[in-house]
């Protein structure tokens, strides 16, 4: 039986009174990997921030439901504790806060209780090895002076520890060299299971060589204008985005 995790219905979102999303519809079930593609400025990142509850993004119409619960009434921290996760395209630095303190606080918040330090260390170590993260990483300040690749690895490390039901990965592939891309993709693949779902936001096919989504959606001008299976991503790679928009014009 399919279990629906996330339902987005006719979502309209404005930033500073400018409408960016103009009626997005999307349903994501447990066990599914969705890719959301589209050009820069099509509204992909707006969708990811809105899903997580960034106060700058005002929902003017529509619904976001998580297991049928209305997410729009909740601040970001409540959504996170419920099982939403956003891997940021540009994770912000928190100078003076060490990665280990931060991870421990996040895990405590998500699981609702302190994790015994030994257990936490072991879990951390295991995930860090998988993602090729050095130990000295833990004593550094969160994203402070990190390279692009280090930031993305930290985003995936957090995902591994927080075990979200619904993970939104915003351009996680950007700025990664080929080795880092492989490691990060392997990390995502190993975390995807029949109990959770992943929404990959990207404008390249590159990441999709390593992660195979069941569904691919194309976003244009604040709407999802085409959906298909993984073949659609290859088609986009070969033909670019123009043919879809032309198709749209022809239909109209």
């Amino acid at each position: 039986m399919t279990k629906t995790i996330l339902t987005i219905k006719d979502l309209h979102v404005s930033v500073e009174d400018k409408e960016i999303l103009k009626g997005v519809n999307l349903t994501i079930n447990a066990g599914e990997i969705h890719a959301l593609m589209g050009r820069n400025g099509s509204g992909k990142s707006t969708l990811s921030y809105t899903l997580m509850g960034h106060p700058r993004y005002k929902v003017t119409k529509g619904q976001i439901l998580f297991h049928g619960k209305d997410l729009l009434v909740m601040p970001a921290d409540e959504r996170a504790r419920l099982g939403m996760y956003l891997a940021f395209q540009y994770p912000v630095a928190i100078p003076g806060v060490s990665v280990s303190n931060f991870l421990r606080a996040a895990v405590k918040a998500k699981r609702g209780q302190d994790v015994p330090i030994k257990e936490f260390r072991a879990e951390l170590k295991d995930n860090m090895t998988k993602l090729g993260i050095a130990n000295e990483f833990l004593s550094r300040y969160v994203n402070d002076g990190f390279s692009g690749g280090e930031k993305k690895r930290l985003e995936i490390l957090q995902m591994a520890l927080l075990k979200p039901e619904m993970a939104v990965l915003d351009e996680t592939d950007s700025g990664l060299d080929i080795d880092a891309l492989k490691t990060v993709a392997e990390g995502i693949n190993s975390l995807a299971s029949s109990d959770n779902a992943v929404l990959l936001i990207t404008h390249y096919q590159r990441l999709l060589n390593y992660i195979t989504p069941q569904f691919v959606h194309v976003m244009h001008n604040g709407e999802v204008i085409k959906s298909g299976d993984s073949k659609l991503a290859h088609e986009l790679e070969a033909k670019g985005y123009d043919w879809i928009t032309q198709e749209l014009v022809a239909q109209a």
Partner: peptide, 20 residues
């Protein structure tokens, strides 16, 4: 927002930023 998106309450997030 970054800290809250990881489940920390606004109060905890502010504490973290100030301590940092």
């Amino acid at each position: 927002f970054y800290l809250m998106s990881r489940g920390l309450s606004q109060k905890e997030a502010e504490e973290f930023v100030v301590l940092g």
